[in-house]
Design a protein around this nucleic acid. Structure first.
Length: 345
DNA sequence: AAAGGTTCCAACCGCATAGTG
DNA sequence: GCACTATGCGGTTGGAACCTT
């Protein structure tokens, strides 16, 4: 079955010859591609326009970066994939010089296997059930990796620059992150102070490992970045930020009461316990308020809107990750993230 | 060295959507 | 609103290259 665009033409298929490449390059560099369907004829090629377009975009474009993916690119792919899923074109946007096809192939041939080997489901980025984990039980490296990955909350911070706000479609499968380098965490044993972000320092000490508290993202500080927020999990879904720093100059709200950001093993929002919803429903009945922010915060609304298909944030990325027991590391600081990602403990 | 298996990636296929008349 | 075309995208495939036996 041929393409719609070339069903009437006698077209060549399969691998491109150097001569064909040369013709296409010469034509496009001279004239631009214009309407792709007319390119083959004008360039003297026995191909359909679609094939020419693909060849140009995936292979001949001068701005393409060839060669293997760097560790940084690999990390970016994983992190963006965690947010947007198999939306290769979206992912490729954050990898200059890479194409969606290239990213997709790299994912399928390489990253997927690495994640599975670490006991992570490449689709969900969650831990696989023990039976599905390959080599993770008899492999100390993986065991080490998982022990790092699992118990720590993670941090997600939005970049809410003007362009992003303009481009954002806030259906929010998940927010994405711009993570500034953090100051080194204080040297404490069990009680760790949260890092000070963007000059917000009035954060009281708290027990970082206390399961009653969880990091949540909210927007934003004076530098137009969203900041993490500690929320009392035991308040059954009510957002009870710790600290007097809820600022939102950008006008959009990310914090969702019913969701917490899970560990690095699963950065997707995770609905809290059923009791949370019940409590909220009770609250709604009691309060009977129609509050604008509630629209965004409503669990049902968010739930319904969790369609990654329209997630389109101008995201920036860097990798703040929990690193070891109660500690953080950032992507700008070295190999910790690599160790976490690939088990080089 | 040869056969068979596996991996990788360029290219294709088909669907969705936008644009146009 | 409809039909048609062009474009973009994700899933899939085919075959060359590589690896294993």
């Amino acid at each position: 079955m041929g393409h719609h665009c070339c069903s009437k033409q006698k077209v060549k298929r399969g691998l491109w010859s150097p001569e064909e490449d040369e013709k296409l390059i010469r034509y496009i560099t001279t004239n631009g591609h214009g309407c792709w369907s007319s390119v083959p004829k004008l360039a003297g090629l026995q191909r359909c326009g679609k094939s020419c377009r693909l060849r140009w975009i995936n292979y001949l474009r001068p701005d393409l970066k060839r060669g293997s993916f760097s560790a940084q690119e690999e990390r970016t792919i994983i992190d963006v994939h965690r947010i947007v899923g198999n939306r290769w074109a979206q992912i490729a946007k954050y990898l200059p010089g890479r194409t969606d096809n290239e990213v997709k192939n790299f994912w399928n041939s390489c990253i997927k296997k690495k994640l599975i080997a670490q006991g992570l489901d490449p689709n969900t980025h969650h831990l696989l059930p023990p039976n599905d984990q390959i080599n993770s039980n008899n492999n100390n490296t993986n065991a080490c990796t998982l022990s790092h990955i699992h118990p720590q909350p993670t941090a997600l911070v939005f970049s809410s620059n003007t362009q992003m706000i303009k481009d954002a479609k806030m259906d929010m499968k998940s927010p994405f992150m711009t993570l500034p380098p953090l100051p080194p965490p204080p040297d404490t044993s069990n009680s760790i102070h949260p890092p000070s972000l963007h000059g917000i320092s009035a954060i009281p000490p708290f027990e970082f490992l206390n399961p009653n508290y969880v990091w949540m993202t909210t927007v934003s500080d004076q530098n137009q970045h969203a900041v993490m927020e500690l929320v009392n999990r035991s308040s059954m879904g009510r957002s009870t930020p710790i600290g007097p720093y809820q600022i939102n100059p950008s006008g959009f709200e990310i914090l969702e009461e019913n969701y917490t950001w899970d560990t690095i093993a699963s950065l997707e929002p995770r609905k809290q316990l059923e009791g949370v919803q019940q409590q909220q429903q009770q609250d709604k009945v009691c309060e009977g308020k129609a509050d604008n922010s509630k629209e965004l915060r409503s669990g049902e609304n968010i739930d319904n809107s969790f369609d990654s298909s329209s997630f389109d944030l101008e995201l920036e990325y860097s990798g703040l990750l929990p690193c070891g027991t109660g500690m953080y590391c950032s992507s700008t600081s070295s190999s910790c993230i690599d160790q976490l990602a690939w088990g080089d403990c």
